[in-house]
């Protein structure tokens, strides 16, 4: 078996207890929540007889002892059955999977934007350390780092949609127009610009600051002095010798920030009406759909685990000293 495949299998096996732990945790939260599914349904119907509630509880297995319920819940999770959303009249898994691509697109665009611009700005700041350009970049990063993601989203709508009318403020595609192929992709891309930028700003600031610090640290190493002594140009030293080593902490940070980005996408998707996982979570809160809400929590945690495995593979590719075997 190729080593990468073996590594992947090993990592995914390691993830099993984590996912199981989160599932147990989810179950505890459901138990703690005031009122169960039967109560909610009965309340919806505008009151129900005790017999009807008892019947509902029996149908959902809510009358059984807690350990039995937990066992059933875990068995269901293992089979990817996260329950049924009565609001959407759909299994929770199907609902989440239908919203997942939009969130992945949004997050992917935000990561690429934040990472590439963050690296670029960080390198520029480090090459001009303590000079005006560094100050401008550092102050900008400091401000972006303190800006609430949902607020900057609203301000961007105000500027680019309301005032300038350049970009659409909401949704993922133009309603009522049937586009295909390239025109469709372009339409989605136009809708993507504002939410992806809003989501990426905070992370761009984070990467800029980290990249600057990381570059400065590598600059102080002996091998950089050697490179300079060889008579290499500053540009070559920066991009050929320092950048690659300075990138490593950034990749680690990327893995740590995936969860935080998923959280940010709840806010961004709510602001821009982006039809993804985050908006689904928001809707679940207001429809008091606990099954759905906990399903989103579980699957977003699984997503964090999966993306981190991918990032570890990238890491091994960037740094030959790190072996996946």
């Amino acid at each position: 078996m190729p080593r990468v495949v073996r590594y992947l299998a090993w990592r995914l096996l390691q993830a099993v207890p984590i996912v199981a732990g989160i599932a147990v945790f989810n179950f505890m939260l459901l138990q703690l929540a005031p009122g169960d599914a039967a109560d909610v349904l009965a309340g919806e119907a505008g009151g129900a007889t005790p017999e009807y509630i008892a019947e509902l509880k029996a149908r959902f297995g809510l009358d059984q002892p807690v350990p039995v319920q937990l066992g059933k819940y875990l068995w269901n999770v293992a089979r990817l059955d996260l329950g049924f959303s009565f609001r959407h009249n759909m299994p929770v898994v199907d609902l989440i999977l239908s919203r997942l691509p939009a969130t992945l697109l949004l997050m992917g665009a935000a990561i690429v934007l934040a990472f590439s611009l963050g690296v670029l700005l960080g390198v520029t700041a480090a090459r001009h350390v303590n000079r005006p350009l560094d100050t401008v970049i550092s102050v900008g990063a400091l401000l972006a780092y303190a800006t609430p993601i949902f607020w900057i989203g609203l301000m961007m709508i105000l500027l680019f949609s309301v005032q300038l009318g350049w970009l659409p403020s909401s949704g993922m595609r133009t309603i009522g127009v049937d586009l295909t192929g390239f025109a469709y992709a372009l339409d989605v891309a136009r809708h993507l610009v504002l939410p992806a930028t809003a989501l990426s700003l905070f992370f761009m600031a984070l990467y800029t600051r980290l990249m600057r610090a990381s570059m400065l640290e590598v600059y102080s190493l002996d091998y950089v002095t050697t490179a300079r002594a060889k008579g290499l140009t500053e540009r070559r030293v920066a991009f050929k010798h320092v950048l690659r080593n300075a990138l490593l902490p950034m990749v680690t940070m990327l893995g740590l920030q995936i969860g935080s980005m998923l959280g940010g996408s709840v806010l961004v998707e709510t602001v821009f009406g982006w039809p993804g996982l985050g908006r689904l979570a928001f809707e679940a809160v207001f429809q008091r759909d606990n099954n759905l809400l906990l399903g989103v929590l579980l699957l977003s945690s699984v997503l964090v685990v999966i993306i981190n495995v991918i990032i570890d593979l990238t890491y091994a590719r960037l740094d030959p000293r790190i072996d996946v075997g």
Binding site: I18, I22, S260, G263, A281, L297, S301, V304
Partner: peptide, 24 residues
């Protein structure tokens, strides 16, 4: 540390939403 890892895997903001919405 396993427990800590578990808590670090769950996206913090979504977790906070779930907790606040379940406990009012």
């Amino acid at each position: 540390m396993r427990v800590t890892e578990l808590f670090q895997t769950i996206p913090a903001f979504i977790f906070a939403i779930v907790l606040v919405s379940i406990f009012q």
